[in-house]
């Protein structure tokens, strides 16, 4: 492996001396660059790094991965946006850019990008500290209504999973709680186990093991059916059927390229990622972690993104958490 890398690198230096015939060669004729908009060890990173070797096999070229983090992913997206649209640069991203304009984080989002492949999505799980009295989602929500401003939720910042899910829960009838932002799901779960927060919403992949070990109490999965990896946890729709209109909802991880890349490059990339994502090793890894493999591209992926954005932006707008009105951004109301 090491050897191959060196060799490729060595080859990469050679054509400096003169080969400009590469234009005529079929895509892809050399290494690709994959920019991951989240940090090493995070869900976007792990998902991307797990699928890439299978994609490389299908593509016949190496994808050099690098993390460009910061600004809830805006840095990586802006960087890829500034590079030529030749199909040699990919953006490994998550759901966050769909909310950049609503939350005034960046003027650039996925508008100028095309989804090559949506890899997988996670299902939010609502968990509580194990010493808390609640045994169902309803008990938690009702307790928050009885004791406004007393119960502490660990969040991952505005637009994050915990923030959006709590806003969605509040659409069933308002409640007021304290929301403490942590640096991510991991630190939030740590605080939850230490009793410094009472409840939170975490992606199924990050929390399944903690639930299984009994370190935290799972109240509900934010889905309309139970998850195979957490069969005993009821869906949120059991207590609040009206939430079904918002589902499926949760973080997702995918790969994007600039919209105006050559058609040939796009087709090859889509095909390679479709093959790579279908690899049993990858699908087993994802489902084993409680994620749902998506493997969608093209119009289907565009439709998923549009619906996700519409549902989320408007729920934030109704809760007063949006900084720019989605109507002015031409984001349609969810039907």
């Amino acid at each position: 492996m090491m050897h191959r890398r060196m060799l490729l690198g060595g080859l990469a230096a050679a054509p400096l001396l003169g080969a400009t015939t590469a234009r005529a060669q079929a895509f892809p004729s050399r290494d690709l660059l994959g920019v991951i908009q989240w940090g090493a060890g995070g869900a976007t990173d792990v998902t991307g790094r797990a699928v890439t070797p299978h994609v490389e096999a299908a593509l016949g070229q190496k994808i050099v991965l690098q993390n460009r983090t910061g600004g809830t992913g805006a840095i990586g997206l802006t960087y890829v946006h500034g590079l030529p649209s030749d199909g040699y640069t990919l953006l490994y991203g998550a759901e966050n850019p769909l909310l950049y304009k609503v939350l005034n984080i960046s003027r650039l989002d996925y508008t100028d990008f095309t989804p090559i492949c949506l890899l997988a999505r996670s299902v939010p799980v609502i968990v509580a500290n194990k010493d808390k009295p609640w045994n169902s989602l309803k008990e938690l929500v009702e307790d928050m209504r009885r004791n406004p401003g007393r119960i502490r939720m660990a969040s991952t910042g505005p637009g994050g999973q915990a923030h959006v899910v709590s806003t969605m829960l509040a659409s069933t009838g308002p409640f007021r709680h304290i929301s403490i932002p942590f640096d991510g799901e991991g630190p939030g779960l740590t605080a939850l186990q230490g009793g410094h927060a009472d409840w939170m919403t975490v992606g199924s992949g990050a929390v399944a093991e903690h639930v299984r070990a009994g370190r935290v109490k799972a109240l509900a999965v934010f889905n309309d059916a139970p998850l195979p990896s957490l069969p005993n946890v009821p869906p949120a729709t059991a207590d609040y059927p009206e939430l079904a209109r918002l589902m499926p909802w949760g973080s997702f991880y995918g790969v994007w390229a600039k919209k105006d890349i050559p058609a040939e490059a796009r087709e090859k990339l889509v095909a390679a990622f479709r093959t790579g994502t279908a690899n049993p090793q990858f699908t087993q890894l994802m489902t084993g972690n409680g994620n749902v493999v998506m493997n969608t591209s093209g119009a289907e992926a565009e439709a998923f993104l549009a619906r996700w954005q519409s549902v989320t932006a408007w729920i934030l707008q109704e809760a007063g958490a949006a900084r720019t009105d989605p109507a002015t951004l031409n984001i349609p109301r969810p039907s």
């Binding site: 054509p15 080969a19 400009t20 590469a22 234009r23 892809p28 004729s29 050399r30 199909g87 040699y88």
Partner: peptide
Amino acid sequence: RGLLPPGWLL
């Protein structure tokens, strides 16, 4: 950049 083939990574 114009001198190098498209997508070239040095």
